[in-house]
C-alpha cells in the first residue's frame, strides 16, 4: 500500500514539477474564454452560415423532389401517349388493310364487270354483224332476184320483138345467156 502511494505521489509531484499543473486542473480564465468564444461562434455562424446553408439545402431538396415528381408525371403522360399512339397506329393499320381489301374487292368486281361488259359488247357486236350480214345477204338476194326478173322480162321483150325464127331465137337466148354470165 505504501509503495503504491509513493508512486502516486511521485507521479503527481513529477507532473507538478514539470508543467506547473496536472491535466485535471481547471482554469477559470479558460472557461470564460471558451464560453465567450463558443457563444460568439454560435451566433456568428448561425447568422452567416447555418441559416443560408440550411435554407439552400432545403431549397435544393424541394427542387429535387419537385423535379422528380414532375418527371414522374411527364413519364406517365409519355407512356399514355405512347400507348395511345400504338393504339392509333394499330387502328390506322387495320383501316388501311381494310381499305386495301375493299379496293381490291372493288377492283376485282370492276374487272369482272368490265370483262363481262366487254364480252357482252363483243357478243352484241358479233350478233349485230351477223344480222347485218344476213340482212345484206337478203338484200343482195332480193336485188338479184329483181335483176333476174328484169333480165328475164327484158329478154322476153327482146324475144318478142325479134322475129320468131328458131335460129334467131337460139341466138338471142345464147346472147342473153352470155350477157347474164358476163354480168
Amino acid at each position: 500500500m505504501k509503495t503504491l502511494s509513493y508512486f502516486l505521489i511521485l507521479a503527481f509531484s513529477g507532473g507538478e514539477h514539470a508543467g506547473g499543473g496536472s491535466p485535471l486542473d481547471v482554469n477559470p480564465g479558460l472557461i470564460l474564454w471558451t464560453v465567450v468564444t463558443f457563444i460568439f461562434l454560435l451566433l456568428i455562424l448561425k447568422k452567416l452560415a447555418w441559416k443560408p446553408i440550411l435554407k439552400s439545402l432545403n431549397d435544393r431538396e424541394n427542387l429535387i423532389k419537385e423535379s422528380l415528381e414532375k418527371a414522374e408525371v411527364a413519364r406517365k403522360e409519355a407512356e399514355k401517349l405512347i400507348a395511345e399512339n400504338k393504339l392509333n397506329m394499330q387502328k390506322s393499320e387495320e383501316e388501311a388493310q381494310k381499305i386495301i381489301e375493299q379496293s381490291r374487292e372493288l377492283a376485282e368486281k370492276l374487272k369482272m364487270q368490265i370483262l363481262e361488259d366487254s364480252k357482252k359488247t363483243a357478243n352484241k357486236m358479233l350478233e349485230d354483224a351477223k344480222a347485218e350480214i344476213e340482212r345484206k345477204n337478203a338484200e343482195a338476194f332480193n336485188k338479184l332476184k329483181e335483176q333476174v326478173a328484169d333480165i328475164a322480162i327484158t329478154a322476153a321483150e327482146k324475144i318478142l320483138k325479134e322475129n320468131l325464127d328458131k335460129a334467131k331465137q337460139i341466138n338471142i337466148v345464147d346472147k342473153y345467156l352470155n350477157e347474164i354470165n358476163k354480168n
Partner: peptide, 14 residues
C-alpha cells in the same frame, strides 16, 4: 483545445 478539461467541461455545461 478539446484536450483540456476546462474547455470540454464548458462545452458540456453549454
Amino acid at each position: 483545445a478539446t484536450g483540456n478539461i476546462s474547455v470540454t467541461a464548458t462545452l458540456a455545461t453549454l
